[in-house]
Amino acid sequence: MEEKGKKYFRTHEDLAIYKLAFSVAMEIFEQSKKFPVEEKYFLTDQIRRCSRSVCANMAEVWRKCRYKAAFVAKLNDSEAEVAEGQVWLKFAVKCQYIKVEKARELYETYNQVLSRLVKMITHPDDWLLD
């Protein structure tokens, strides 16, 4: 649906960036099932938390689209969670818990999420409700 040249979505779940982040979070969940049990309360927990946090933050972003500063702040939180996820992916590779090819695929998808987040951060007016 478009009005005055702007796109309007009903919920955060309609956003392509949310769908992309959610798919990464689910793939990270599947991959992290293979991590050793001794990582359960550290690497496994951390990589799952930050991947899910990106999605949760996007839901919050969507609810803050009336307030520019709050909207941008929450987008920045999402950006930080994506970057953290990329760090945990590197640890998982170095510890040989995840294959390099799979990690590269997830890392690249996170780069796509980052790119979209930065675009939203630098052009928030395109997303704010009037």
Rank of each mutant, 00 (worst) to 15 (best):
Q86S: 12
L89S: 06
R49Y: 08
E38W: 11
L114I: 03
I121E: 02
Y97I: 03
K94Y: 06
W88S: 01
I121N: 00
T122C: 03
I47R: 05
I28Y: 02
C55I: 14
M120S: 07
E79W: 05
S78V: 10
T109R: 14
L117V: 06
M120L: 07
G5E: 05
Y8P: 00
R52N: 10
K6Y: 13
Y18S: 06
F29K: 09
L128M: 03
Y97C: 06
V87T: 14
R10K: 15
L106M: 12
K40L: 12
M58H: 15
Q96M: 09
K33A: 03
I17E: 06
D130T: 04
L89M: 14
R48I: 07
G85M: 06
W62R: 01
V24H: 11
Y97M: 04
I17L: 15
D45P: 02
T122A: 05
A103F: 05
Y41K: 15
K6T: 08
K68Y: 02
I47H: 09
V24F: 10
Q96Y: 08
M26Y: 13
S53T: 12
C95S: 13
I47T: 10
N111S: 10
M1Y: 00
G5T: 04
K90L: 10
K74I: 06
F71L: 12
L114C: 05
F71Y: 15
K64V: 08
E108V: 07
W88Q: 02
R116K: 13
K33Q: 11
P124A: 06
M26C: 14
V93R: 10
K99P: 01
A73Q: 09
I98R: 02
L43T: 05
K90I: 02
L43Y: 10
F42G: 05
S115E: 04
K4I: 01
D14V: 03
Q112K: 10
E38V: 09
N57T: 14
S53G: 13
R48P: 00
Y97H: 10
Y41P: 06
H123I: 08
S23H: 12
M58Q: 15
F22S: 09
V113F: 04
D125Q: 10
C55H: 06
L128W: 02
F35N: 03
F9N: 08
A92H: 08
V87L: 13
Y67G: 01
E39M: 04
W127K: 00
P36S: 07
E39Q: 15
Y67L: 00
V87S: 12
F42Y: 07
P36V: 07
A92G: 14
A21S: 13
